[in-house]
Amino acid sequence: MSLITVKNLSVAYGANTVLRDVSLVVEPGEIVTIVGPNGSGKSSLLRAIIGATEPASGEIFLKPGLKIGYVPQRLHVDPTLPITVERFMRLTDRVSKADCRSALAAAAVPDLLKRQMSRLSGGQFQRVMLARALINRPDVLLLDEATQGLDQPGSAAFYQQIETVRRDTGCAVLMVSHELHVVMSASDRVICLNGHVCCEGAPAVVASAPEYRALFGTGTGGALALYRHDHGHDHNHDHPQSHEVDD
């Protein structure tokens, strides 16, 4: 059974419709990436899936008992709120100290248990959030621009971690990003979103789809393609994996 099924979803804020007739399915164990320009409704889609936004129409089915591990776009820990990494790991689930330790070790940030959340670097913070999301063995991991604020090597390493997690635990991943070249190499399926689903498929297929190129320029030209719209340039990459950093 599919983990998440979205059928003909529309989301509107007042008179402003941000998503029209969006359908998608997330199957167990697959990595699905949603790409789209700013304001394309990527975050609204995730918010609707977790129940933070009421759909204007359409339906969202979650597999009964589905455990979601969520990594938000940005999390601001107010400096007046003291909280150690260990306490943060236990925020929503009762877990043992040993489980906290192993989850942090798996996220490549061991030895942080006693540190204050507000003292972590951006990369450490995102990895702790990932570890927290994974600690209760979720069926699906939702990531909303989880690498915002990380530099390029940092976000590449973060997405490699996601692939490792999927390999080791078999959990599905649904993520939203605009860092095209990094995320596309890690995905099984890419959904290109701009208010509606423009195109969908394997990374290589999407990268060469005319709808995608109209939005992002050609190939896997990197995040800068977002702004360049390099339409004259025309060759299709069959192996997006080989393009880690090519802008």
């Binding site: 918010r47 977790i50 129940g51 933070a52 979601i68 591990g69 969520y70 938000p72 776009q73 999390l75 820990v77 709120l81 909280i83 943060f88 925020l91 929503t92 939702l142 909303d144």
Partner: peptide, 18 residues
């Protein structure tokens, strides 16, 4: 307590935990 703390840290995190 726990629900208040989670909502204080992040609305989305709270929604995702039901």
């Amino acid at each position: 307590w726990s629900a208040l703390l989670t909502s204080t840290l992040s609305e989305e995190l709270a929604y995702a935990s039901g």
